[in-house]
Every structure is written in C-alpha cells, then in structure tokens.
C-alpha cells in the first residue's frame, strides 16, 4: 500500500522536450514508472527519445493515454498555467517540480484548484513523490529508497518534507536501518503550495501499510505548528520530526522562498516546541532522523551517533 501513486499510476511529463524534463522522464522510466507520454505545445505528434508520444495539450494526452498524474518541468513564467491546464484536464496528481514560480501566480493557482477537488497539487519547487519500487515522479535518486515489501525490519514509514536533499538524507537513514518507505512526498519550499503536512498526515494515517510518519519542516510560516495540532488530535501512529534552520538569522531568506522568519513567526524553536507538546519525537540533529524513527517504531536501532 501507499498513498497517491502506485504501480498503476500513468504519468505524463509537461515540458518533456526541455533538458530537465527529458532527463528526468528517462530516469523515471528506468526506475519503473509507467510514463505514458509528454506535453510540449507545438510539438504534438512527435515522439521523445524513449518513444513516448508528445501532445500539444494535457487534455489531448489524457484522452489518448488515460494519464492520471503529471510531472511538470515547465519554466517559471508558464508553470502556473501548466498546473491549471493539468487540473482542467482531470489529472488527479499534479507534481510541479519547477522552482521560481511567482508567489501571486501560485495564489491564483490555489484559488483555481479550489473548484477542482479531484486534483491535488504537490509542490511547486519540490523533488516530487515516490512510492519506492512502484512509481517515481520527480528528481529524487531512486536507489536510496527501500520498497515497503523489501524492508527487512518489516517496518515502513511515510515521509513528508519541505526540503529536497534533506529528504534524501532521511530516506537514506531509514534505508540503512532496514526501514522501508511506503511513499515519500516532497511538498516543496515555497510559501504558497499544494498539499501540505495536514492533508498528507491524514492520508498516511489511513494507509494501513504505513507504520510511522516522518515530518521534515523548516523555518518560516506556521504549517508545522498546525501539523502538530493535527497529529495530537488525529494521528495514532508514531510521528518523528526534524526542523531545519535553528541557526538561521531572522529576516533572511534561506534559499527557499518560504524559509524566512519574519515578525516573530516561524522560528525553529516555536515549531519544535509545538511538535514536542503534541507528543512528537523531534530529532535534535539532521543525522539522527532515522535513528529517532527506529526508536519510535520500537525496533533495534543501530546507534550511529
């Protein structure tokens, strides 16, 4: 079991003829993702180097391939429209990898998506989503993950993260401890985005295969505080968290547009306190996320501190 995507998910790539889109389409195919085509306006009728059909519009791609997920690499000025196009074509899982979409464009996208409840957006500015061994939609390295059925410890976790490489770090720490992953979702580093911690915590909570959940947050906003309240009231599975940015000075943008502390809101301390108050184990160090999860799951943890 998993959330959102699995071995049956049919995926297209919007921006398939760009360098990033082409490269990652190939990577996803090699991982085993059921890639069924791509979209680049003006290049409909052609095929990509892997033999995948290219369409002019997402609607056309959906009609002809039955795609239900999309991976978006469209450049920032056109990315918001690409998301709306996918939702309008009935794509259920929209994964926007593009970094640098204007904030007001995303505000409009989210207003637009409110009227399309059958579509969910992951990202933008994110590594994507992966159900290990079944479906990889995004730029994460596939081999660091452990499919749920191959987990020697028999334990499987779901991962929700605002950061890319830090997610890989957490995945790697789980995999080296024989903890499998049901699904890993990078929700992205932007202030205005699609799915957030709460929606995904709800999905992982319902997913029977998921034994525990890792939440990776960072400074900025108050989403982690909201997630903490949600976990306290709704989630019965072990939840482990890590918050990046304890040493970040206030008011400076730390790479991610969302990672800025302003007006006393969004500090790492406030988030860690809220998470701990909700009974969530917060890893002190980015190097002990896997170990903290292993302890929370009650399995013999090899201590590599």
């Amino acid at each position: 079991m998993s959330i959102l995507v699995n071995k049956n998910t049919k995926v297209i790539c919007q921006g398939i003829t760009g360098s990033a889109g082409a490269f990652h389409t190939k990577q996803c195919l090699e991982y085993g993702t059921k890639m069924v085509g791509g979209v680049t306006p003006g290049k409909g009728g052609q095929t990509d180097p892997n033999g995948l059909p290219i369409f002019d519009t997402v609607a056309q791609a959906v009609r002809q391939t039955g795609a239900d997920a999309t991976m978006i690499f469209v450049p920032p000025p056109y990315a918001a429209e690409a998301i709306m196009e996918a939702a309008d074509a009935g794509i259920a899982t929209i994964v926007a990898i593009t970094e640098g979409i204007p904030v007001l464009d995303m505000v409009k996208v989210n207003a637009f998506l409110k009227d399309r409840p059958n579509s969910v957006l992951i990202g933008p500015n994110c590594p994507g989503i992966i159900t290990p061994g079944e479906c990889k939609i995004g730029i994460m390295p596939g081999y660091i993950h452990t499919p749920a059925r191959k987990a020697k410890s028999k334990k499987k976790v779901g991962i929700i993260s605002r950061s890319g490489t830090l997610t890989y770090e957490a995945v790697w720490q789980c995999s080296t401890r024989d903890i499998g992953q049901t699904t890993c979702v990078g929700i992205g580093g932007d202030p205005i985005k699609g799915l957030n911690f709460i929606e995904l915590l709800g999905m992982f909570n319902k997913d029977r295969a998921t034994d525990g959940i890792i939440v990776i947050g960072e400074i900025g906003g108050s989403d982690e505080e909201a997630a903490a309240r949600y976990v306290q009231e709704n989630v019965k599975k072990p939840v482990v968290a890590f918050i990046a940015g304890r040493t970040a000075p206030p008011g400076r943008r730390m790479g991610h547009a969302g990672a800025i502390i302003s007006g006393g809101e969004g500090s790492a301390e406030s988030k860690i306190a809220a998470l701990r108050q909700a009974g969530i184990a917060v890893a002190e160090s980015p190097a002990t996320i896997g170990q903290t999860m292993a302890q929370a799951l009650g399995i013999a943890a090899e201590v590599a501190a």
Partner: peptide, 14 residues
Amino acid sequence: GAGLAMSTMDIIKL
C-alpha cells in the same frame, strides 16, 4: 539543497 544547507549549519552549532 537549501534544507540540507540549513541543517548543516544546525549540526555545526549542535
């Protein structure tokens, strides 16, 4: 990566 970069600062301080 921005998240890993922040975490690296954090672990130095730790």
